[in-house]
Design a protein around this nucleic acid. Structure first.
Lengths: 127, 127
DNA sequence: TTATTATATGAATAAGTGTTCATATGTTTA
DNA sequence: TAAACATATGAACACTTATTCATATAATAA
């Protein structure tokens, strides 16, 4: 009996640690409720967009006002190309929207989520 | 008069765009309310921690239950060292806390903010 | 003490990312 | 039409970062 039980436990265990130190009950319970791998990858990609100072600054200034590329570049004291590249990233992740007016393109935040997430982040770091 | 005005405008403008395309009123207004540069850098660093699939997964499993390093490694099918390295990052950003029990170290989420931010991210990507 | 186990960490490597430069696209004005 | 302007984009380079490997540290058991 003792031996059978041990055998089964080892069958479940993956060889990730060199030795057996797994709390089976916890692991199997959490495995059940784990979202699909792809969803967590998407979530990481979403937050990755916030994880860059330039993009954070862009999002912040856009939370104050709609703005064209050149305005943003001037505000952040950065090149137009750098800003344009980052706006593309923000666009792809649907964090900003834009409208064209002649030669100028005005960008703005896509929705209220963005400001809300920024605010929560601020709360955390100011604790 | 006309000339003086133009001169002043150029004084304000930074040479970020090749040509003058700045909306001065917007730019100067937003400049007033911009947080300190360091605060936005910290905010980016904070979100950077969420911008990695491994760390997102760790945060997710810890949102379900306190867990030891080996448990996490098994759940994510990754090496113990990789998990340990990432837990250090999470620890430094005060996203997880830990308690020692003999040889084992149990990690858990530092506070409720974390789950809240994860949930908001999920909302956005599931739209 | 020594052996075993759980975790931590430094170094190395591979993969990813942000900016710059040059240039292309698209719009307006002359 | 050509010239000027605002933005977009591909390529290159420097920089960052995640994982692995080997090893160190720390706690327990023999």
């Amino acid at each position: 009996m003792e031996q059978d039980s041990k055998k089964n436990i080892q069958d479940y265990e993956i060889d990730q640690c060199d030795f057996i130190c797994v709390h089976e009950n916890v692991v199997s319970q959490v495995l059940k409720v784990m979202p699909q791998d792809q969803e967590l990858l998407d979530l990481a990609d979403f937050f990755k967009v916030f994880g860059d100072a330039t993009r954070i600054k862009i999002l912040y200034v856009l939370s104050q006002s709609e703005m064209c590329v050149c305005d943003i570049a001037n505000l952040l004291k950065m090149g137009q190309s750098a800003i344009s590249h980052q706006l593309r990233v923000l666009k792809q992740m649907r964090l900003v929207k834009f409208r064209r007016e002649g030669k100028t393109v005005f960008y703005s935040l896509a929705d209220g989520h963005i400001e809300s997430i920024l605010a929560q982040g601020m709360e955390h770091i100011n604790e």
